[in-house]
Deep mutational scan, measured.
Amino acid sequence: HNGKLCKLKGIAPLQLGKCNITGWLLGNPECDSLLPARSWSYIVETPNSENGACYPGDLIDYEELREQLSSVSSLERFEIFPKESSWPNHTFNGVTVSCSHRGKSSFYRNLLWLTKKGDSYPKLTNSYVNNKGKEVLVLWGVHHPSSSDEQQSLYSNGNAYVSVASSNYNRRFTPEIAARPKVRDQHGRMNYYWTLLEPGDTIIFEATGNLIAPWYAFALSRGFESGIITSNASMHECNTKCQTPQGAINSNLPFQNIHPVTIGECPKYVRSTKLRMVTGLRNIPSIQYRGLFGAIAGFIEGGWTGMIDGWYGYHHQNEQGSGYAADQKSTQNAINGITNKVNSVIEKMNTQFTAVGKEFNNLEKRMENLNKKVDDGFLDIWTYNAELLVLLENERTLDFHDLNVKNLYEKVKSQLKNNAKEIGNGCFEFYHKCDNECMESVRNGTYDYPKYSEESKLNREKIDGVKLESMGVYQILAIYSTVASSLVLLVSLGAISFWMCSNGSLQCRICI
C-alpha cells in the first residue's frame, strides 16, 4: 500500500475532517465546509473527530445509520420544511452556546429548535410527501429539559409530546424532565432520530412541544462500492481501485494482509504473511546465498510486491572476458508455465471484495464479540484455502523447474562428451581453451567436438587428477538461474548478450 488516501476510480472521497457522521448530518456549525458535499467514492472519518452533536445527546440507531450510509455515493440536500413558512405559530430561531460559531450562539444547520411564540405553543402538524424518486433521509430531535421551569419557559406545556409517523415508522416521544450533570454547559439533553422515507411515502410530524424540527433532508443515491473508513492518512493526487484505512492498494494479487476493511475492488484479506509461490528452483544453499535460486511470486499485497520470474541462460568467462545470454527457448517455456500457473491461482482465488467494518453500540458488546468470532472463522478458512492451494502448486513448480534445468544440462553434456569433466555440482571442467566463438557454439548447439578432442585428450593426460582450476583450465557451469522482474525479464530476452569482463582471468566458464 502507499499510505495515502486516493480517488477511487477517479472519484474523490468525502473527508469529514474534524467532524464525524453525526456532526455532518445534523449540521454542526463547525462542519459548515461539508454542506456543499454532493457525491463521493467513500467517506473518511478520523479516529478522534471532535465535532459531532454540539448540544449533548445521542443519535439513536447511529450504527444502523452508518451502515445505511456505507452504500450511499451521492445525496441532494434540500429544504424539507421551509423555515419561514412551515411554522407560522412558533418561534424557530432557537440557539445555544453549546453550538457556538465564530463566538456567537448558533444551532444545527439542518434542524430548527421550535419554541413557544408569545406565551403559547399551539399543537403543530406538518407533513412531507417524498417526490424525489429515491429514498429521503429525514432527521429530527426531541429536547429533554433539566427542570419543569425550563419546560414551561420554552414550550408552555408541561405534558408535551412529539409524534412522527410514516408508512414504515411510527413513534411517540415524551420529554424526560430530570436533573443531569452539566455537559457542554447544558443540564438538558437532546436525542436525535432518523428514518428513511421511501419514494411516494408521507411523513407526518405532530407536537405540542420539545420538537427539534427537520429543516433540511437528504435524497440518497446508492453506490455499492462506497463505504466509510476511519483513517488518519492524508489525501493525495492519486487514483486506485482499492482503498484501505492504511493506504491505497493497486494490485491484481488475490490476497492482502494490510487491513480487513477495504473499499472498492480489493484482494481478499488473509492473516498469512508467507503466502508465496515459487518460480525458481529448489533451494541450493551456495546459490541461494548469491540470490540466484528460489525466486518467488508473492500473492499477498503487503507481504511480497508483485511476481518475480526466474529465467535460464548461459554465463561464460574466458580470456576475452565474461558474458550472459538467455536461453530463449527454455526461458519462454518457463515463463509460459509460470504465467499459466499464476493465472490459474488468481482465477481460482481472485474475487474482488469490498469489506466494511460493522458498528455496534456499547450495549451490543456481546453481539460485536460474536460477530468478530464469526469473521475470524471465515478469515481462517480463507487463509487455509489460500495456503493449501499455493503449497500444492509450489511442489509442481519445483518439479517443473528441475526438468527444465536438467534438459539444459543434458544438452551441454551431450555436446562436450569427454572434452570436459562433470564435477558433480552442476559444473563441467573443460580440457581445452574455449574462446567466445567456442562458447557461442555450446550455447547454440553447434559445438565442434572433433575440433577440440585432441587438445582435450592431451590435457587429460597431463592433469592426472590435479585440480583443474589450479592448472588454468576452464570450467563450464551447467545450471544457472538469475532473477529478474517481469519487465526486466522481457528486456533481457530482447538482448543477445551483455558482457562482464574479468581482467586477466584465465578461467573459461559457460553457465546455464
Rank of each mutant, 00 (worst) to 15 (best):
E387K: 07
S330V: 01
N385C: 09
T279S: 01
N343W: 01
Y289T: 12
N419L: 01
N425D: 11
S486Q: 06
V342E: 00
L487I: 15
E440K: 05
Y409W: 08
I512P: 01
I510G: 00
E454A: 14
P254T: 02
R276T: 08
Y449Q: 13
Y384A: 11
D327S: 02
P285S: 01
I476D: 01
N404P: 01
K417L: 11
K413T: 07
R396P: 05
L253G: 00
G298T: 09
P260D: 00
S322C: 08
K373T: 10
V278S: 10
V261G: 01
Q320H: 02
D399I: 14
Q246G: 08
M471Y: 11
F400Q: 08
K467S: 12
R443P: 05
I510K: 02
N425Q: 08
T240H: 07
N385L: 12
Q415P: 01
F428V: 15
I510H: 03
Y269G: 02
Y409S: 02
Y269Q: 05
R290Q: 03
C266T: 01
I479L: 06
D448G: 01
Q256N: 10
E359T: 12
Y384G: 06
C508H: 03
S251V: 02
K358E: 06
S322Y: 10
S414Q: 04
F378R: 06
L398T: 05
I423K: 11
C434V: 02
L506P: 00
P285M: 01
T240G: 03
D380N: 11
V278M: 02
N369E: 10
G303C: 04
I510Q: 02
E437W: 13
F255H: 04
P267L: 00
L490K: 15
D380Q: 11
P267G: 13
S231R: 02
V473W: 12
Y474T: 15
I308R: 09
H432K: 12
E393I: 05
G445H: 06
G426D: 07
G280W: 07
A386G: 05
N257P: 07
E387Q: 13
E347F: 08
Y384N: 10
L379P: 06
Q246Y: 14
R443A: 10
P450Y: 06
S286V: 12
S441W: 00
G465H: 13
K373H: 11
S453M: 03
L408G: 03
F293V: 13
N371R: 03
N385S: 07
S330P: 01
K274N: 09
G303H: 03
R443M: 12
R366Q: 09
N425V: 00
